[in-house]
Design a protein around this nucleic acid. Structure first.
Lengths: 110, 110
DNA sequence: ATCATTAATCGTAATATTGCAATAAATTAA
DNA sequence: TTAATTTATTGCAATATTACGATTAATGAT
């Protein structure tokens, strides 16, 4: 199959999974960290920094952009990418809600 | 390919990606939420609650256990699963470091 | 010992992901 | 216009993931 049965889960569960999925590859983690580190970044810089082929980086950028976590602005022949801070904040709230679930009353049952 | 080139990334980046990957499927999100909601949970309860076939749930549980996020304890013919609170806390710290990256000085460059 | 119950494993089909070479598209420079 | 630069797209091979039927393993009940 290879196809998640999303219809049997809540919107929130699917959203968490979608965000998590995009973070599920170290190249995308590295790209995002680089965009946080330096204010804006050209696609070519990321190719040099990370060391995967240009089409591969381009593909990862596309996924990040599709989820709204980054923005891309064409500047001449280059494209300047940066974090979409508004959407990052929204995503963070969703993920924190999941990660910060209450464990205070969890007996060590197993 | 289908194979991530992990050797070109830092341990931290790979760790973030590994944790995120396991959260990248709504069934595993749902399983974890259920384990948080009720203190302990039998595999069969999760099968009923979530609605995927028993081998599928079992497979998802295996992945969660392999990453150390849950524990499983055999009780007769059943297996009682619960959150591994210690490891959850460690994982959370790693993920929060990634999610909480500083955006205060991010000009809207694009 | 036999049967019932529960969960894990195996095998397999369908689909998704990753990576890159080759190419195309878009823009700028000469 | 032509050439150079930069990024996106296409096509494809290799691998991974998801789901589940069939089966096995483990335990408990009769």
């Amino acid at each position: 199959m290879g196809l998640a049965k999303t219809e049997m889960f809540t919107d929130q569960q699917n959203q968490i999974a979608l965000f998590a999925k995009v973070f599920g590859h170290p190249a995308r983690v590295a790209i995002l960290q680089q965009l946080f580190k330096i204010d804006a970044c050209y696609c070519g810089d990321l190719v040099n920094e990370i060391g995967l082929a240009q089409p591969t980086i381009s593909q990862h950028l596309k996924e990040l952009k599709h989820l709204g976590l980054i923005k891309g602005n064409v500047e001449g022949t280059s494209v300047c990418y940066c974090i979409n801070t508004e959407n990052w904040t929204t995503m963070k709230e969703t993920m924190l809600q999941f990660l910060n679930q209450d464990m205070s009353n969890k007996a060590d049952c197993c």
